[in-house]
């Protein structure tokens, strides 16, 4: 595979990829300990913000990494017939307190799917559901197109 087959996605292409997906991998860190989880998200193409609804319990590993305003990376990727695209968003994950909700936020969280990867074995009243927003400081995307012969390998 030659390097010229890899291209950077335009802002419009990034917006299209993020808007047609609803899941990605969120990575957090504590000191030198990494933590990555599959999550579902809502994305507002106009503001460029991600809206996340994360579920944890007091004993969960996730809770340990969801400290106040953690740094985070969100990776969304897709592949289709020899075409591979990936998006990386990086920024600070800001918790949204229920008292900070606005009409706009209610609409955005309404668009966000329920956590598709969360297994809610307990009733919702026993779970700690927290709202977060990610306003990326950096957002980039790349595409790799393999020729037909190479993609058939």
């Amino acid at each position: 595979m030659s390097l010229d087959q890899q291209t950077e996605l335009s802002p419009d292409e990034i917006r299209e990829v993020l808007s047609r997906h609803e899941t990605g991998v969120l990575s957090l860190a504590k000191a030198d300990e990494p933590y990555a989880i599959p999550i579902s998200y809502g994305y507002d193409g106009e503001s460029g913000r991600f809206y996340l609804r994360l579920v944890s319990t007091p004993e969960s590993e996730k809770r340990q990494f969801l400290t106040s305003s953690p740094r985070a990376r969100l990776v969304v990727h897709e592949s289709n017939d020899g075409s591979y695209r990936s998006i990386i968003a990086e920024g600070t994950l800001e918790r949204v307190d229920p008292d900070e909700l606005t009409v706009e936020r209610i609409v955005q969280y309404g668009k966000a799917k329920r956590p598709l990867f969360e297994i809610w074995g307990e009733t919702k009243r026993d779970l700690d559901i927290q709202l977060f927003e990610l306003d990326p400081e950096t957002l980039g995307g790349r595409a790799v197109e393999l020729d037909a012969a190479e993609s058939d390998k």
């Binding site: 229920p98 008292d99 009409v103 969280y109 309404g110 779970l127």
Partner: peptide, 27 residues
């Protein structure tokens, strides 16, 4: 009624919650 979370809303937020569901749990 599903997650038990509560918060104050104005008319616009009430309409949005009725249309979109609970922003906390999605119900």
């Amino acid at each position: 009624p599903q997650c038990g979370e509560g918060f104050a809303v104005n008319d616009g937020m009430r309409a949005a919650v009725l249309e979109r569901g609970c922003p906390i749990c999605g119900s």
